[in-house]
Design a protein around this nucleic acid. Structure first.
Lengths: 254, 254
DNA sequence: CGGGGATTTCTTGTCGACAATTAAAGGTTT
DNA sequence: AAACCTTTAATTGTCGACAAGAAATCCCCG
């Protein structure tokens, strides 16, 4: 008999690992199921409860969410397409860990895309749109003053998302959404809690330029704003010796 | 017994429809399988052998390509993400048929994106890159003179794709590729064979501006070029009474 | 003769099962 | 003791099976 004390020959048998399932008992529409799993994973990544490099085996996700592998695979496909996870053939999916170069390209793309979007916003935006933008800015400021970091971070990116929406171009909106959520991911990765940049004045400046019809000015302000955000990221990244740990291969396994 | 002459009660039983399978007998790597199906469908759509609105039932595709439904579904997901097909819940997937408004937004996005890409191209491009661009332009001109329409169409979009590549930004490159292939789809849909615009001079002008360091000029030339292309599409669309046939529901079935 | 169900079939949504691949440890040989 | 091979488990790739939803036709009734 194979006792528990004697270590078997091959790969060690993993313990059943009773994972706490949180599947809502009530039946839900098929589309909602998929969305629920998707957002659950994205949220955990944003909260840093799922760190980059963490393995995401399909079976575990199946138990966690109480669904079959088909659905989990579909979600993983979507996550991989959005670069939230990395999908390797015949290997577990892992939470994506963007390299320094990728982060640079990411912000470059974001600057280019937002600059391309601003003229369309200026073209289509109405008074009501500007009013709602300003309302959003007030919320943002309040959250900052209340030191509600997670909420504030969400609102800050919501501003840029709203700009994408106001371009009235579904494709550009989608692309910008994709890039912004990846940026959020990066920020969440490298930003130690409690270390936030005070940026909401810059948002206000962009809106002011837009409302005054100064598109070029808005582009310039936004570009500078994004560069500042990126510089802050880089700085923090230098601070922690992330690269060293990475080189030693300590970030690979749990 | 249920004879073939008497029409049964419910929905008419469809004939097995012996479809000619073209599955390569030799085993292939899993990733290649998926790509083979994907490109096969895209190619058929581009050739207009699969017209918009054509239904794509999973079972038929399974027989055609000799694979299971899992793979077919994965491919359909990708195609839907690229807006090549439309995916409705509990209904057959159909080849996408972009509306007039979507086409407008599509070209708007393309103009914005290419304008955003050009500065990066000017920043990164080397002498050798410009040389290869010019080589491509010569091929393009030759193909046009030889009246090789399909080849020429491919080369014409290849020029824009190359610009995306030269931006050295993977994300922008991918987005531009997506949009360009959608534009190709639209062009293929509305462009009757043999009716091509003579555009390669405009490409040359863009390259000339870029090489001279005149980014704004290149953007302007490219913008005008794309607007001309779109205007040509619209014109043709007005010509054929596509909307009428659509309203009569004649475009639904083969 | 037209409209509302009933009925049948088609089609997708979802799941577990089996095969193939990869990783990780132990044992073995030099 | 270090490098290689063997064994074992974990994990994904792929498929058919079953259930549920939608569509098309016919039947019946007004």
């Amino acid at each position: 008999m194979t006792s528990t004390a004697t270590p078997g020959r091959g790969r060690p048998k993993v313990r059943p690992q009773a994972l706490a399932g949180q599947a809502p008992a009530g039946r839900e529409k098929p589309a909602e199921k998929e969305q629920r799993i998707y957002t659950a994973i994205v949220d955990r990544v944003m909260e840093q409860r799922l760190k980059p490099g963490t393995r995401l085996p399909e079976a575990a996700l199946c138990e966690l969410f109480g669904v079959g592998r088909t659905l989990v695979q579909k979600v993983l496909q979507r996550l991989a397409h959005d670069h939230i996870v990395e999908l390797r053939p015949n290997r577990s999916a892992i939470v994506a860990m963007p390299s320094r170069e990728e982060v640079g390209k990411l912000f470059e793309a974001r600057r280019a895309l937002e600059a391309a979007v601003l003229p369309l916003v200026a073209e289509h935006a109405t008074r009501a749109n500007y009013a709602s933008l300003r309302r959003q800015l007030r919320q943002e400021r309040d959250a900052m003053h209340r030191y509600a970091q997670t909420e504030w971070a969400g609102l800050a990116s919501a501003f840029h998302l709203r700009l994408g929406e106001l371009s009235r171009n579904p494709m550009l909106h989608r692309y910008l959404s994709e890039i912004i959520s990846r940026c959020c991911l990066v920020v969440a990765l490298f930003q130690p809690p409690g270390n936030a940049t005070c940026e909401h004045h810059e948002h206000e400046r962009v809106v002011a330029c837009l409302e005054a019809g100064d598109v070029a000015g808005a582009q310039q302000e936004n570009d500078r704003h994004l560069r500042e955000l990126e510089a802050h990221i880089q700085l923090i990244e230098e601070d922690t010796d992330q690269s060293l740990a990475d080189m030693l291969g300590l970030t690979d396994r749990s």
